[in-house]
């Protein structure tokens, strides 16, 4: 049995570390400034404190303290709507918008990370109380690693095969292999697309992947991430240079057309492979009886 001071301190520490470990600048390019970090670290600290204080409260039979956790849940739901709102408001300023599905996904991830901070601090506080500081820290670390593993996301790489697709025109119609992308009227634009444009074909590995890739939110996320990573040769008012993703309805393959600032097909394929599968777009028809039967 350890003093409450140690219990709470270790809990807060481990919970805050958990939040910090999950806070990295990633391909989403967000958050990228110290201010953005600070917001999330501060909230992570609050989450960790709630988790850590819960243990002594419960031991002292102050069961009403649990209601504070409900308050915390409310607070973190607010984080989600805060993220959603701010990203949605910024959509107009993006040359290639993220799309509402991707925004919802990012917001959800931010919310869940705070719960991870709570559970980590709760776990390590329990460890400190019943065992000692050493085991408390170990518990916290194990939880952090566990959450890292659990929260790892599926990416396009794991559900599909990504390869280069040849761009070509039939009259004004732009195709990536046999997938029709759009009708480009201006001859000059066609010339630029022919010279600088790149095409990518994403072949789904199974029926689950096919249904997921058909989702418009997932496609918009791919277009956004690819143009965020490779840059995009487009300005406001040049809609014909917007990256577009269209589907071959017979095979379920999707074809993307993009004019990146860095026309490097290898990097483009890698960028597409790294796009996360969005939770709300993910479909698993194969895990149902009907879907399985329909697939044979």
């Amino acid at each position: 049995m350890n003093s409450y001071g140690e219990v709470v301190t270790v809990g807060i520490l481990m919970g805050s570390i958990a939040r910090f470990a999950l806070l990295k600048i990633d391909y989403r390019q967000y958050p990228s400034y110290p201010q953005g970090y600070l917001v999330h670290l501060a909230l992570g600290f609050i989450a960790a404190s709630l988790g850590a204080v819960a243990v002594p409260a419960l031991i002292e039979k102050e069961y009403t303290a649990v209601t504070f956790l409900a308050l915390a849940a409310q607070q973190f739901r607010d984080i989600r709507s805060m993220e959603r709102e701010s990203l949605a408001k910024l959509e107009d300023t993006e040359l290639v918008p993220r799309g509402s599905a991707y925004i919802e996904d990012i917001a959800k991830v931010f919310e869940s990370r705070n719960y991870m901070a709570i559970f980590t601090s709760l776990g390590s506080s329990l460890g400190v109380y019943y065992l000692n500081i050493f085991w408390g820290i170990i518990t916290g670390m194990v939880l952090i690693i566990l959450f890292h593993l659990v929260s790892r996301r599926q990416t396009i790489r794991s559900i599909s095969v990504v390869r280069e697709g040849k761009l070509h025109f039939k009259g004004p119609l732009l195709y990536v292999e046999d997938i029709l992308i759009m009708n480009v009227g201006l001859k000059n634009s066609r010339k630029i697309i022919k010279e600088k444009g790149l095409g990518v074909i994403i072949e789904p590995k199974d029926d689950n992947a096919r249904a997921t890739l058909a989702n418009m939110g997932q496609r918009q996320a791919i277009a956004h991430d690819a143009s965020a990573l490779l840059g995009i040769r487009k300005d406001f008012g040049e809609p014909e240079f917007t990256p577009l993703i269209r589907r071959n309805h017979a095979t379920g393959e999707i074809g993307m057309f993009i004019i990146p600032s860095e026309p490097d097909i290898e990097c483009l394929i890698e960028a597409v492979k790294r796009v996360p599968v969005i939770e709300s777009s993910k479909r698993t028809p194969l895990s149902s009886e009907v879907g399985k039967k329909a697939a044979d």
């Binding site: 009259g171 004004p172 009708n183 480009v184 009227g185 201006l186 001859k187 000059n188 634009s189 406001f236 008012g237 809609p239 014909e240």
Partner: peptide
Amino acid sequence: LEKLAMYISRITTGMVHD
């Protein structure tokens, strides 16, 4: 035709289709 289409599309930020 091409020139008019280009001008109007740039002014209105619309897309030209043939």
